[in-house]
Design a binder for these strands. Structure first.
Lengths: 252, 252
DNA sequence: ATTACTTTGAACTCATGGGTTCAAGTTGGG
DNA sequence: CCCAACTTGAACCCATGAGTTCAAAGTAAT
């Protein structure tokens, strides 16, 4: 279905009418992501798509249009991945904490992946030029994701596995607890974050989330009951002014 | 040393050597914020600063340099505001929840203000072109802010007003609970969020935060104990698929 | 007033790149 | 075989804007 998804392979271009359009959109997103909107030139996009410049203008009238379509397409791709992950909460195992940590970890992997990072950067970058794009992208990603999560949380609450509370708020905060710390640690997506650290962030998010939204029957998380960890935290707190960073000290 | 920190006032330009430099930096940030890096032209910045174009190049060698200095200056301004807010936690009143809500609300006002939004947008926008800028800005804003918050939380924990836990993690999550939902609701800063909604976000963040990090002595928040509110949330959860938004239902 | 320095405006150079044009193919269907 | 539609490459037009040059003028301190 997408024979040119790889794009810009050595082939000098198999003339004819294949999926030029799709190839162009893929190449466009790649180039925009790499260079930014203003610095990306249509010529380069055409080359990366294995297509001539006029062909680009033939399919997508101008640069702005090209950009919008490429961004929306990428947003839909990211969203599909995220929704697939959230579906896993439809039947969490006996261990809700483990299930949430798994979902959290997978969401983080998607949200900090190449596509999602580039998408966020591009959207932010063009806030000044195309303010409406923020709404479109947000509506196709965060919005739907929040709704899907809220759906799952609502069912879990009815099943007595989460406290009865506004599921929309729970979803909103669950996502915030995941992505907020990740954004900081990945320096807005410029630094790679190890799987271990990602897992740690997910674990911390789920801990806090379950404190607030967990049903009564599940005790506090193991890491918080561990007297050693707790002691260390308290000791560390008095020395926090002198130490520059406390990340990566010890995982759960 | 900085007599013209106010800068760029309406004055049609009192010829001579005042603090052209500061005026230029202020104007630069304003124009960059309004147009984005690539679309901002030095000519316009010069005009806005009430200065001739060569003067700009005289003080700051080229456009990139101008941008970097302007962004860093703005970051420091935002940071100063944030630190001042966090200082209020040095002596919270008897009501810790109220104190945290107050600080949360004020932090949100700063982080969603004109400068902070523009700063975030500009930083994201130039990730592709100046990847190192992310680190610099992050280090001057989120980094310091997190440390300052962690300091306050550490003291509160020692005083027995928060649970003994890693203060850095608590700070990280407190900020995430505040800014995450706000970013979504303000559409990345493109939409104005009412004071009431901002307060609601702060309240929700503090609720969740205290569930996870509060000392035992403070019961769950009033809004969560209110049987009416709880019932409403449960009822709402079964209808969550049909209703589009649950924002603005009821504040604390 | 003289000197040393900065600012100014305006014109200029030059590179980049969006978008178009066009003649010469290439493709596929009838 | 031929026509219509599409693609191609290459050249082209033109707007924008970074960065420079320079002579004239303002400013400050001596």
């Amino acid at each position: 279905m997408t024979p040119a998804t790889t794009a810009a392979a050595g082939r000098p271009a198999p003339r004819g009418r294949i999926d030029k359009r799709q190839a162009i959109l893929d190449a466009a997103f790649a180039v925009f992501a790499r260079r930014g909107y203003a610095q990306a030139c249509v010529q380069e996009i055409a080359e990366e798509a294995g297509v001539a410049k006029p062909t680009v203008y033939n399919h997508l009238s101008d640069k702005e249009n090209l950009f919008r379509h490429a961004v929306v397409a990428a947003a839909d791709l990211v969203m599909a991945e995220n929704l697939a992950v959230v579906e896993r909460l439809r039947d969490p195992g006996d261990d809700l904490r483990a299930g949430l940590e798994d979902v959290g970890y997978r969401l983080l992997k998607v949200c900090c992946g190449q596509r999602a990072s580039a998408l966020r950067a591009l959207t932010y970058a063009q806030l000044a030029t195309f303010p409406d794009l923020a709404e479109v992208v947000q509506g196709r990603t965060a919005g739907r994701l929040g709704e899907a999560l809220a759906d799952r949380f609502a069912r879990l609450a009815l099943a007595g596995r989460l406290r009865a509370a506004d599921p929309a708020r729970a979803a909103e905060q669950f996502l915030a607890l995941l992505t907020g710390p990740m954004e900081a640690r990945s320096r807005l997506g410029t630094r790679a974050v190890s799987a271990a650290e990602t897992r740690e962030v997910a674990g911390a998010a789920v801990d806090t989330f379950l404190y607030a939204y967990g049903a009564m029957d599940q005790g506090p998380p193991a890491s918080h009951c561990d007297p050693v960890a707790t002691r260390a935290a308290v000791i560390g707190s008095s020395a926090v002014m002198s130490s520059s960073s406390s990340a990566g000290d010890n995982a759960s």
